[in-house]
Design a protein around this nucleic acid. Structure first.
Lengths: 194, 194
DNA sequence: GTCTATACCGAGATAGAC
DNA sequence: GTCTATCTCGGTATAGAC
């Protein structure tokens, strides 16, 4: 990797960290440049402007997350429905917990993106949640009839729990987070039985 | 109410709307003044600076919410535990849905407040969620033993569902929102039974 | 590709007339 | 209490040397 490519990568990495913690408006190009040990104008050699930089990071977050999702799906392809649902709910949360800045970024920008960000970029995020719904449905379809309550009720609960756990990314130690997730899982699993 | 007091009230009301939709940084004093049909510097006759204005709104949101909570608690004091839990989960959501800007404000600032906001103000928001937990526990304690699973599991699920529904304030029509809430309630209620 | 210097703009905030 | 005029600051972005 060339020197220039390395710098660009560092800008993306540190931009992710700052945007996910401080937010878009509160993060100046000077802040990012300082982390990368360059001066702010040097960023313009790699990105046309701040908005484009943000959108590049946005894209990368989505790509990384989809990659993780695809991996995980393939490894649980042959598991029981219970294990599949557990992986989808708890596994996604653990991914966001362990890749904290991706998790915080998703939390901050998934439904409250900064104004003036390209609507196309916003749509991509929504497509992502649609994909999760498709996966969820495919898991549920494989099960014998009459095991679960109506699918749409399961979907609503699933997403409320998934979105709700975003709130707890910051405030819990690893252990507490896992305990919490399993508590939620237990209620969810029992609740969706017929 | 004097003219001055009316202006101050209008600033608070329009500030709430703008802060809850556009966010703290993206809302300029000029934006707010414009909605109130005054010029930006006139705001300083009512509030020392932008931060103080924001904190005043913050306080008002919390006060309004606590008032609503107190009312609701008193009306369901003698109801069954099932009705009490339903009211606390679904009723809170409906309140946020019907008072959209209070809901959006809570969503935006409860766990991601703008930097440089008085930590004391932040603490107040946390105290609020602690109060809800106390109410929730008081409801659960009244029930006969062995009806429900462990209390801490109920609490974790309850708050994940409550926080998760913040995400759906903006994107659903009234009817869909209510259907969604009841779907979630059904899974939750079944899930917490022993 | 990175630097320094600088242009430019919009925000918060103050001064002082009315 | 509200206005106009103005100050100050910090941000994005550009110009041009190295």
């Amino acid at each position: 990797m060339s020197k220039g490519e390395q710098t660009k990568k560092k800008i993306l990495e540190n931009g992710l960290i700052l945007f996910s913690t401080k937010g878009y408006e509160q993060t100046s190009l000077k802040d990012i440049a300082s982390e990368v040990s360059i001066k702010a104008p040097a960023i313009y050699a790699h990105f046309a402007n701040k908005k484009v930089l943000f959108e590049s990071i946005f894209e990368k977050v989505i790509t990384d997350y989809i990659e993780h999702l695809t991996d995980r799906i393939s490894t649980i392809q042959k598991s029981s429905t219970k294990e599949q649902l557990y992986e989808l709910l708890v596994g996604t949360n653990i991914f966001f917990y362990e890749n904290k800045h991706i998790g915080l970024f998703m939390k901050k920008y998934s439904l409250s993106p900064p104004e003036s960000i390209n609507p196309i970029t916003q749509k991509k995020m929504q497509t992502l949640t649609n994909n999760i719904e498709v996966i969820l449905c495919s898991f549920l379809e494989e099960t014998p009839d009459r095991q679960f309550i109506e699918t749409n009720k399961i979907i609503d609960s699933f997403f409320s729990l998934l979105d709700g756990s975003f709130f707890y990314l910051e405030n819990f130690s690893g252990q507490d987070f896992y305990i919490r997730m399993n508590n939620i899982w237990e209620v969810f699993w029992k609740g969706i039985q017929k």
